[in-house]
Design a protein around this nucleic acid. Structure first.
Length: 379
RNA sequence: CCGGGGUUGGCAGAGUGGUCAAUUGCACCUGACUGUAAAUCAGGCGCCCUCAGGGCUACGGAGGUUCGAAUCCUUCACCCCGGA
């Protein structure tokens, strides 16, 4: 279903894709590049900004929008995912810990220990002046015991409650808050998580954790890639009038599937990271391999046609002498200005100019792709 | 001309009698990447085969010692450093 989200910096029309400005930057490109690529809203991470400059500084400066010179909606992530990866990192050495109060972790670059709590995560996001905030959540490692997973899911709900309370007391008018449904690969835990969070009445409900198949879900039909059943199930637990946000999704066909089953918002690192690795998204017939999404549902909201695109591994030797643009059907700065051969060369020598052009292209592709999906939704 | 040091796979540079088709880095080839601790990571990189294994050819050239040599000896070629 198409929705319009009203924020303090304009409306978001769904479905929408938001690239990630992890350290307060969408790597290798400017916000102006991002805007020209057709991107209308972005995500930024609270934890990294807090570590690098501090949200107090951003507040003093006049807010994250002014700092970025980005006057469109900004969604802030809570730091939950970052903490999850820190805690589960082999290099963690037990220095990063989860307690009922919050999580303590050591900043790998400064060695400083910090405590992130549901309350201070919200405060940081309020300092930034975010349009859509996210509660501090607890992604679950699907390999730990059921007992531990249950405990984590329950704690996730308690943290959401604390975050909501703090948010309600301190928010500015018009700011929105999203909670993150956890539970890992366990359907019952997901159900419980969604129920707990629905009672607290958030503006957004997010799919949390890893949206991919993992060790304990090998038994399903899709051996790898997006965990379709779980995304479908979790979506069904979210009230229809609320915004649903599939965090970390995904490949273009993954997004098509999620749009088909009703998810509204998406963010993923794939177009930006892969661009730096010479992995480009192009229109069908333009790359090495075709991928497509065709709805398996009789009552699909998407029009019946299939959505196809190609993957192009630009580092592959086959493009050594290719003077064509990355995608003849694309009008982005990259496709208008350089050949595949030259861009391949730039990326191979790790030249920032190449990363930038490839990133501009992939972001343009994603913006167009989601736009195409929006147009195809029949309601 | 004399004395000393060196010559290893595309490059740099380990190895100094068997466990060496040869550590490592770079380059090269392929792949992965899904709320970015990710300009990262994984694998491959002499030739051939019946390819969890086996065979052949290789460490400047030629010869020798040895059961066995990239490693020891002789000699030739080239390079570097000192002295005439």
């Amino acid at each position: 279903m198409k929705k319009t989200i009203k924020t303090n910096h304009g409306e978001i029309k769904t479905p929408a894709f938001m690239p990630d400005a992890t350290y307060g930057s969408i790597k290798t490109v400017s916000f102006n590049d991002v805007k020209k690529a057709g991107i209308k809203e972005i995500v930024t991470t609270t934890l990294h900004i807090e570590q690098k400059v501090g949200s107090i500084y951003i507040k003093k400066f006049g807010g994250i929008h002014k700092f970025f010179k980005w006057d469109r909606p900004i969604l802030t992530d809570s730091g939950g995912w970052q903490v999850f990866s820190l805690i589960n990192s082999p290099k963690s050495n037990g220095k990063n810990k989860l307690t009922n109060a919050g999580c303590t972790f050591v900043d790998p670059s400064t060695g400083k220990t910090s405590l992130l709590t549901p309350e201070n995560s919200i405060q940081i996001q309020l300092n930034l002046g975010s349009d859509i905030l996210t509660v501090l959540d607890i992604p679950i490692d699907p390999t730990i015991s059921l007992e531990e997973r249950k405990k984590a899911t329950t704690l996730n709900s308690l943290w959401a409650q604390r975050a909501k309370k703090y948010f309600d007391q301190n928010k500015l008018p018009g700011q929105l808050l999203g909670a993150v449904i956890q539970g890992g690969d366990d359907f019952e835990l997901r159900k419980q998580s969604a129920k707990d969070l629905a009672e607290l009445d958030f503006d957004l409900y997010n799919f949390g954790g890893i949206p991919l198949y993992s060790e304990v879900s090998w038994k399903y039909d899709y051996p790898q890639g997006l965990y379709r059943e779980m995304l479908h199930f979790v979506k069904s637990l979210i009230p229809d009038d609320k915004i649903s946000y599939a965090m970390g999704v995904g490949m273009p066909d993954d997004i098509a599937y999620c749009v088909d089953i009703g998810w509204d918002l998406f963010d993923t690192v794939l177009p930006t990271r892969n661009a730096r690795h010479g992995f480009l998204f192009v229109s069908e017939g333009q790359g090495d391999a075709t991928r497509s999404y065709k709805s398996p549902f009789d009552d699909s909201k998407l029009s019946k046609k299939s959505f196809s695109y190609d993957i192009l591994h630009l580092r592959n030797k086959r493009y050594e002498f290719d003077e064509n643009p990355v995608d003849v059907n694309c009008t982005c700065e990259c496709c208008k200005s350089v050949s595949r051969a030259y861009l391949r060369y730039l990326i191979r020598i790790k030249e920032p100019a190449g990363f930038r052009l490839a990133t501009i292209h992939n972001l343009t592709f994603y913006a167009n792709w989601v736009n195409k999906l929006m147009i195809s939704i029949s309601n």
